[in-house]
Computed example of a mutant assay.
Amino acid sequence: MIKKLFILLMVVSVTAAGAFFYVTGEVDDYLDQPFAIDNEQIFTIEPGSSFNRVLSQFTAQGWVNENQFQPLVRRLYPELTQIRAGTFRLLPEQSLREALSFLIQGREHQFSITFVEGTRFDEWREALASDEYLEQTITELSEEEIAQKLGSEHLKLEGLMLAETYNYTLGSTDLDILKRAHNKLNEALSSEWNEKQSGLPLKSPYEALILASIIEKETAVESERERVASVFVNRLNKRMRLQTDPTVIYGMGDKYQGRIGKKGLRTPTPYNTYTIYGLPPTPIAMPGRASIEAALNPEDSNYLYFVASGKGGHVFSKNLKDHNTAVRAYLREIRSQK
């Protein structure tokens, strides 16, 4: 009798163990299935969503196959159920188990928006407005109203944002990005102003920002920035007009159609540095930190002129005769390329 009971218990134990391993294997197969997606997917878990609700959403999207043992995930792998609200990125071939582990960590997907050095505030507004993941709050606001929300003492925002890449999570607003860019610009400008060369013809950090924006528009060659800065600083010290085309173009606004022409150079505007002395009243673009640094730490030179070489850089001259020679060489180079 005891022997039969022992055998029965062994059979039950073996059957139970077999059933357990079978069920565990089925649950593991369910968890290890890859997402059926071709491209990355952005997935948002709303606050208060349950674990089963998230699995149901995955199934409804057709990303994972349903399994009758799905309800047992909570019992066998309770550590996988502690998901957090947020917006996450799901990748092709990522398994359900890997995705759940990532959701538990709560590291939300970072979106990004990049602003290129030398772009203008109206271009920033367009980029922000076209970003589908940003909450739009400034679409109907004027530039002056935005400036007030940023706490800026300047009502024209040109140049007052630092051009770089900004990461953000879902729920961020366009104004949030502008605030961060504005604060980073102020931090960079303050830091560089404190380390500036002595004897510069710049009365304030804002004037340095104006000069930095001109440098940004004049050259994209990293090694030239300090030399370009020196030309403008030398001309300011000698009370010479800056005579820089990007300021003329900025002052022309919508009238600029790809060519300045003699009329454009002669038509006075607050930004036409062919007709005014000194700096224009505001920056003409959003500068990067390198241009701010160059404006406040120019190369020590006697250069007063520069012109494009036609080969990607510029030719710098110390007198008008050499400059005119360089201009003629540039025109020959351009004609030879046609």
Results as ranks from 00 to 15, higher is better:
Glu79Cys: 04
Arg84Leu: 14
Ala85Gln: 13
Arg89Leu: 13
Thr59Tyr: 05
Gln61Tyr: 09
Arg74Gln: 15
Ala60His: 14
Asn65Lys: 15
Gln70Ala: 12
Pro78Cys: 03
Phe58Arg: 14
Pro92Asn: 00
Gly62Phe: 08
Arg75Ala: 12
Gln70Phe: 05
Thr87Glu: 04
Ala60Asp: 12
Phe69Trp: 12
Leu91Arg: 07
Ser56His: 14
Glu79Gly: 01
Thr59Met: 04
Glu66Phe: 07
Pro71Val: 10
Ala60Pro: 10
Leu76Cys: 11
Arg84Gln: 15
Arg84Ile: 04
Thr81Gly: 01
Phe88Thr: 00
Leu80Pro: 05
Leu91Asn: 02
Phe88Trp: 01
Leu91Cys: 01
Gln70Arg: 09
Gly62Val: 06
Phe69Ala: 08
Ala85Val: 09
Ala85Pro: 13
Leu72Cys: 01
Pro92Gly: 03
Pro78Asn: 08
Tyr77Met: 07
Glu79Tyr: 03
Gln61Val: 05
Gly86Leu: 03
Tyr77Arg: 11
Thr87Val: 00
Arg89Ala: 15
Val64Ser: 07
Gln82Asp: 12
Arg75Thr: 15
Gln82Gly: 09
Asn67Asp: 11
Val54Tyr: 06
Ala60Trp: 06
Gln68Ser: 14
Arg84Trp: 06
Leu91Phe: 03
Trp63Pro: 03
Glu66Ala: 10
Val64Ala: 09
Asn67Ser: 15
Leu90Glu: 02
Phe88Asn: 00
Thr59Val: 12
Pro71His: 03
Phe69His: 09
Gln57Tyr: 08
Val64Met: 15
Gln82Glu: 14
Val54Glu: 02
Leu90Asn: 05
Thr81Ile: 06
Leu80Asp: 02
Gln57Gly: 10
Ser56Phe: 07
Asn67Trp: 05
Gln57Glu: 15
Gly62Ile: 10
Trp63Ile: 10
Arg74Gly: 05
Ser56Trp: 06
Glu66Ser: 13
Phe58Val: 13
Thr81Ser: 02
Ile83Asn: 01
Leu72Val: 01
Thr81Cys: 01
Pro92Thr: 00
Pro78Gly: 05
Phe69Ser: 14
Gly86Ala: 00
Asn67Arg: 12
Trp63Lys: 06
Gln70Ile: 01
Gln57Phe: 10
Thr81Asn: 03
Val73Pro: 00
Thr81Met: 06
Arg84Gly: 07
Phe69Cys: 06
Pro71Asp: 12
Val64Gly: 05
Gln57His: 09
Leu80Ser: 02
Phe88Asp: 03
Trp63Arg: 11
Leu91Gln: 06
Thr59Asp: 05
Arg84Tyr: 10
